[in-house]
Amino acid sequence: MNIKLKVLFVITLIYLTFGQVYGTTAEGILIDWSDKPYLIDKEGDGSKIDDLVKVSWYPDVVADKLYFRLTRSSLNSANRSWKAYIDINSEGNFFYIDIRSNPNSGKADIAIYNEAWVLLWKTTGYWCDSYNSELYIPMSYIANVSEAGYGFEIYVRTDSDKAPDVGPIIISTISTYPTITLFIVFIIVIAGSLSRRKGI
């Protein structure tokens, strides 16, 4: 068999193997958090009410939602209301998210403010229990997600704790920056084609 045919055959087999692997499910209070990114924060470095121990996040561009789940220490009072804040630096534009969770009612109030502390958006839902608060914010409020190449720095905190303790959580795309590459290859190909035409 021709070597090219062999290569084509092997590549086709690999592609067909990879092609049917994944499926998506999303259920839970807001979404299923079992397979989402998270970080663990040290327990005991905050007050008894709002010691953060885990933060999860998930950007869903299609649904235009940036989801968060904040977990506070289970060593603390299960019924005390607590506040958390998420500060977002979206390429120099700052947004502040205010989360107020009431475990007694199960209600979480979410509000987004801009740099000038003007209220941009707010919502309320039954998204918290004794130790967890879930929320989402519309991604389009904080970035132009219809364009590639966006990124956020996220700082999650309460009145007494931060998660992570140092530095941000970063969510970013990693573009290949195709425009410049394609411009250069366009010149290469046209030059090649013209030299072929002229017989150079």
Binding site: W57, V61, P164, P168, I169, I170, S172, T173, I174, S175
Partner: peptide, 10 residues
């Protein structure tokens, strides 16, 4: 260490 970055392949 304590920092986390999530790449989103768009």
């Amino acid at each position: 260490t304590t920092e986390v970055i999530t790449f989103f392949l768009d």
